[in-house]
Amino acid sequence: MASVQTFYLPHFPSNPIYIALFKDVSNASFLRQQLLDANTEFDYAFLDATMILSSTHLLAALFRTLNDSLHNRLKSRTIHSEIVFSLSPNNNIAEAFRRFGISATTNSLIAVKISMSPPSPSNPLSIESVQSHLTRVVQGTQMVFSDETLLGLTDLERLRKVYKLDSGKVGGGGAGKKGRNGKEESVVNGMNGFEDEVDGRLEMESVILGIMALKGS
């Protein structure tokens, strides 16, 4: 079974980031309620996995969160709520939670926890503690957090809408929308579908990263 994964962003070596991905989550409303009640045991960023395009997408949001936290300019209450806010294209915190956070109907869930200090025997936060707590409270199937898994989960249409990507020529994707190469749709035996989808996603990702980076300017 897949387990919690630890990530380190370059330039933030003392902030291990624990990420777990769950499918078929059945107690989303319970988890959401814990956040609303500000239950300190549930100090996570719970994200709707269908709104995460790729690992880069999430890591970019984490980078912005850690950088803003380093400069002491978080806009929301905790570092974990700031992750949800960082994903949003605008400055409305409530809207950010509605779009990217966990809802009562969330099926696929990404749980993120940032540690503010490196792992050590004295640090109560560790990959084991996060894993055991999540296993206890989340009812669902744990998956590997990877681009591969996200490929099957992302709601491209909704992402495109939320980031307002319809106007341009961004992101062909698998939906058959006209991508950057839309004009010369010369499908060679229909075999480059997969590559076109990967290309479309990468293109979309680039624009989304830019939108996230410039948020609040």
Binding site: S206, G210, A213
Partner: peptide, 12 residues
């Protein structure tokens, strides 16, 4: 980037 002109993307 939005309009599909090839330029470096803004990452952060």
């Amino acid at each position: 980037r939005r309009e599909g002109v090839r330029v470096p993307a803004v990452l952060a």
